[in-house]
Design a protein around this nucleic acid. Structure first.
Lengths: 362, 362
DNA sequence: CTGTTAGCGCATTCAT
DNA sequence: ATGAATGCGCTAACAG
């Protein structure tokens, strides 16, 4: 009784509906789109015909070719799905975008895993794209979007002309954390950074690596620390995950003779990892080691401690990006060059229980 | 210097490229699609012309109208993004789908939040859709898809004819957990279930609620418990989150006079919540209370303990769904009714450290 | 191998 | 308020 695969009768078209209703295609179109004046009686007739034919409404393909709009908003993530969504900050941002965009009838196209995203932008229909957690490495993706005349909004991205930017005060916020540590009396501070390049190579934080970095967010946060501790060193993690934080923590704490008294991690997940590493080294937090994070996404127990961190308005950023997209699409009516402007958000300091004055040095 | 909004010169078309290369449009098309025989020299000329015009390749809109294929695979989630991705099982499934589908040049369209999904299916172009963690409540979505001739794959969904189903042995797997508890000597077992309806109402698990349930997965798992403990009661949670588990746990453990000796939670996150609730009640796990979960997704510390659970091949399920989608699209060459068949997976028992014999009753 | 001929299904002028 | 015409940009058949 499976009625699929038998006759393969194609779905009815608007033309079929119009014919059955005894009106022209254009009138039927108007009846559905709501635009333009249509007599109530006519509209009713069209509706009836549609119901009889089990017509599902105008085919999105025809509509998108004709109108130039598909209702699809691409969202580019750097990593594959599994990795990208390990960090709740990305989920929050995505949710924020969806909040603004889906009530307007737009759907989100997930472009995860860099390699593919450039290709997808080239071959998949979309009205605009949002770059999440982006680095200059997506230059190729940006290029493709440009050529297709697809407007771009970047969250935390490089400020390229023509790309609308939604950002936060990474540097200042991190500096605030660093100052907090300085005020507590810390002098020997290390950091754990987000990946600096596409390879996501782990390793010590060297001048060369910073010079070669392609990740703006990480760079800014490094600068923030050094605004307060100019000589601060650290290690580079391969991603914003707890286990990466553990690895980094061990790297930092391995040598009892050269342990920092505080660690600035560039994300809460990394901070959680550092704390665990500290515990594994027999250190107590915050008595023996202070740890601060970044993001402020409280998700169940991913971050067990009450972490001292900078709270980032992730959902707000997503929403701002969503709004920007809508503005870019709905309102090219900005006749006077009043193109939508970028938005900058501010993080707020949260003093948790993972920071304290350093132990008296022996 | 922002070159957008000035002259609005539309992107070049294939026709323009063809003209510049001095070939026909169809030849140019072949040169890009790779299908069909094209002389190397010609192809070269076309490529050159495209480069000169900064042509980004065939416009997906025209292509999708003409060919009927968009390369877009819709993924329907019941909750909004923020909630859906709180449970790593969903992320794993989504990643599995992406694994199969994106190397084939397909992109995922996120249809989160039920309400909108039916509308999106009606208005957004897509070649197929995958229903994740679905309940019969998406009937409307299914209807829309059908009318559009969009093939459907359901993961853990109701077995509707015409919908390809990817499932696991929920009932048998849960029964196995229950038997494990029975073997340990437990007789007084309660459960914490996933939401039974769209409202996601919390409350005691009553016969009426089960009768009115629209969630197949939850139903099956309840049956699994009752295969072993026919009289087992429990509470219904409002979602698969740790904090819901805490709530449910407190509900179950509130009265010291009527505490179960073991709890079967329908997800690992819920189990983690129950464990926390137990601790807050001054109970030790597993000495005073045994707890089992379901899913087996190890994600950093979301589930702090080594949980006794049934491990679900989440990524495999996603991949199976992805493959099914591809088969449905690439191969309607199943001339002989050899339509792709559904797949059923099996969970594997993991004995963790959260189960033990019950305390000797006083 | 290449060009010619047809539309895919629809939204939008412009008439009436 | 409705209808007739015109492509949107492209690919699939067929000719040659």
């Amino acid at each position: 009784m499976t009625d699929s695969g038998t006759t393969a009768a194609r779905p009815p078209t608007l033309a079929a509906v119009a014919a059955r209703a005894g009106v022209s295609v254009s009138t039927a179109s108007l009846a559905f789109s709501g635009a333009g004046p249509v007599a109530e009686s006519t509209r009713e007739r069209v509706r009836a015909a549609a119901a009889e034919l089990d017509y599902a409404g105008p085919d999105p393909r025809g509509r998108s070719l004709r109108s130039g709009r598909s209702g699809i908003v691409g969202v580019v993530l750097q990593e594959r799905v599994l990795e990208a969504f390990r960090d709740p900050i990305n989920i929050a941002v995505l949710d924020g975008i969806a909040q603004e965009v889906s009530p307007q009838g737009r759907a989100l196209l997930l472009l995860a895993d860099m390699g593919e995203s450039a290709h997808a932008v080239q071959t998949t229909v979309m009205d605009a794209i949002v770059l999440v957690a982006c680095s200059p490495a997506i230059a190729r993706t940006i290029e493709q979007a440009r050529r297709r005349d697809v407007p771009i909004v970047a969250i935390g991205g490089p400020v390229v002309p023509g790309v609308l930017s939604v950002s936060i005060d990474d540097r200042a916020a991190t500096a605030q954390l660093a100052r907090h540590l300085a005020d507590l009396g810390h002098r020997d501070v290390s950091m754990v950074t987000l990946p600096l390049d596409l390879d996501r190579t782990r390793g010590p934080l060297t001048a060369e690596r910073i010079a070669a970095s392609t990740t703006m967010v990480a760079d800014e946060r490094i600068l923030g620390v050094r605004d307060v501790f100019p000589a601060a060193g650290g290690v580079v993690a391969a991603g914003s995950y707890v286990d990466e934080g553990v690895l980094a923590g061990h790297a930092l704490l391995a040598d009892p003779a050269h342990r920092p008294t505080a660690v600035v991690a560039q994300s809460d997940l990394l901070a959680a990892g550092v704390i665990r590493a500290a515990q594994e080294c027999g250190l107590r937090v915050p008595e023996d080691l202070s740890v601060v994070g970044f993001d402020g996404v409280r998700v169940d127990d991913a971050v067990p401690h009450d972490l001292t961190t900078m709270v980032q308005p992730a959902a707000e950023e997503g929403r701002a990006a969503g709004r920007a997209v809508l503005a870019l699409l709905d309102g090219p009516e900005a006749a006077d060059g009043a193109a939508p402007e970028g938005v900058a958000f501010t993080c707020t300091f949260h003093r948790g229980a993972t920071t304290a004055p350093p132990r008296a040095t022996t």
